[in-house]
Structures are given as C-alpha cells and as structure tokens.
C-alpha cells in the first residue's frame, strides 16, 4: 500500500539468467551480449540504450526469439523458451510477441489492413473477425478510412503506426521495438512515442531500443549496454 511503483509486485514477464550471445568471426569470439541477468515484469516500459554496436539489437532479437542464445536461459512468463523447436518458437512469436522495426517492414504489395492481418492469419483467426480487429486497430491508431491504402501511399509516421497496429494484432503481452523512431523526424518520433506511452498505460509491456535519451522519461525501467555488458540504470 502506498508504494508508488507497483512494478515490484507484478509477475515477471521476462527473465534472463546468464543469457549470452557470441559470434565467431575469423577465429575470434565476439561477445555481442555478455552473460546477462534481467527481469522485466508485466506492465514495464523498458528502454535499452547504448552506443552503436554495443549489442542492443542483439538483446532485442533474443527477446523476440529471432536468434538463439549461445548460453543461458530465457523465460517468458515463467516458461523457458530459448530451447524450443522452430515450430513452437514461431507460435510463441506469433501469440506472445509484437515486433516494431526501425524500417517498418510492411509488405508493400498488401494493403495496410492486410498487413495488420498477417499475424492473425498465422494465429488462425477467422477472416471476418480478423478484418474487424484490423480495422479497429487502424482506427485506434488514427488510420480510419485508410484500410485499402498501400504502405507506399503513407508517410513514415503513418507506416510506423500501421506496424504498431500489426504488432498489436494478436494482443501479445509484450511489444518489442528496435529504434522505432530511427527513421522518423523528431515530431513524428514524438507522436510514435506517445502511442507507446498510451499502450503502456493500457497495460502493455514495452521494450524499446532507442538512441534518444529524452525518451527515458517514459520508461519505468532502463538498461544501458556497453560492449555487450548490460547495466540497469
């Protein structure tokens, strides 16, 4: 009671125990991520900062199950997920993780509504339900009436909003964003950040890589990486 930060009382969503990633290049080992301990609880807004090449994307890709760790354990909602086979990994990605990229990564030959539908297609949603949900998400993100547009017809900020709608499609507990404002001007970046803040307020866990220290003000938890070494700050 009376504790201003409820974070400590919540269930852990992500737990890293000695998670590490190394690359081998020309006989030498590169520690992209040194053995790392970290707990991210439900409802957190985590920012990941650090200089270029420090291992931020590596960390995020490990969270997103897009790469396998060299060692250590990654638990998602208490379940170890780093050892899952490709099939189960895909299912976890599909249902538990929403991803937002710096370069949007929308499929240019599909309409924005179809883009938002893609994760739901892989989740096996019925078509009608899928369309309704895609439209509701696009409405929510200020893209009402643009359902039939192609990504090439939208501005960068609008594209990133479509990407966020897509990340939310299967209502995953966590959204991973790797420099989501990196390709946007300051004002638009600010707008996108406000969207993340709103999502955070609505209860989503957000993990965001950013170069901009201003955005730390939205965070409930923050880490910095230097040469693969992570520090909570």
């Amino acid at each position: 009671m009376g504790v201003p930060d409820t974070q400590q009382t919540r269930q852990p969503l992500i737990e890293l125990q000695g998670l590490a990633k190394t690359y081998e290049a020309g006989g030498t080992l590169i520690y992209a991520l040194r053995p790392t301990e970290l707990t991210v609880r439900h409802g957190a807004f985590l920012t990941v900062m650090g200089p270029s090449g420090s291992g931020k994307s590596t960390l995020l890709n490990l969270f997103g199950l897009l790469m396998r760790p060299t060692s250590g354990v990654y638990r998602l909602e208490g379940r170890p997920v780093s050892g899952l086979n490709d099939n189960d990994t895909s299912t976890v990605r599909c249902r538990m993780i929403g991803m937002v990229f710096q370069s949007f990564n929308l499929l240019s030959h599909l309409t924005i509504q179809e883009n938002v539908c893609v994760p739901m297609q892989y989740a096996g949603l019925p078509r009608a339900k899928m369309h309704l949900r895609a439209q509701a998400l696009l409405d929510q993100l200020g893209l009402a009436g643009r359902y039939g547009s192609r990504p090439t017809q939208l501005s960068g900020g609008q594209c990133q909003r479509v990407a966020i709608a897509r990340a939310l499609a299967n209502d995953p507990p966590v959204i991973l964003a790797d420099e989501p404002t990196g390709n946007l001007d300051e004002k638009t970046g600010q707008e996108v950040l406000e969207i993340f803040q709103e999502l955070h307020r609505a209860g989503k866990t957000i993990i965001m890589v950013t170069h901009n220290p201003i955005y730390r003000k939205y965070a409930t938890q923050s880490v910095t990486i230097h040469d693969g070494r992570m520090k909570e700050s």
Partner: peptide, 16 residues
C-alpha cells in the same frame, strides 16, 4: 527474402 523474414518474425512457421 525480406518478406519471408517479416512473416517469420510475425509468427509464420517454416511450413507456412
């Protein structure tokens, strides 16, 4: 290739 990467990141299985 990139489309395939995006689809995989969004939850497509190998068999999809």
């Amino acid at each position: 290739t990139r489309e395939i990467g995006v689809r995989r990141a969004l939850g497509a299985r190998k068999r999809d």
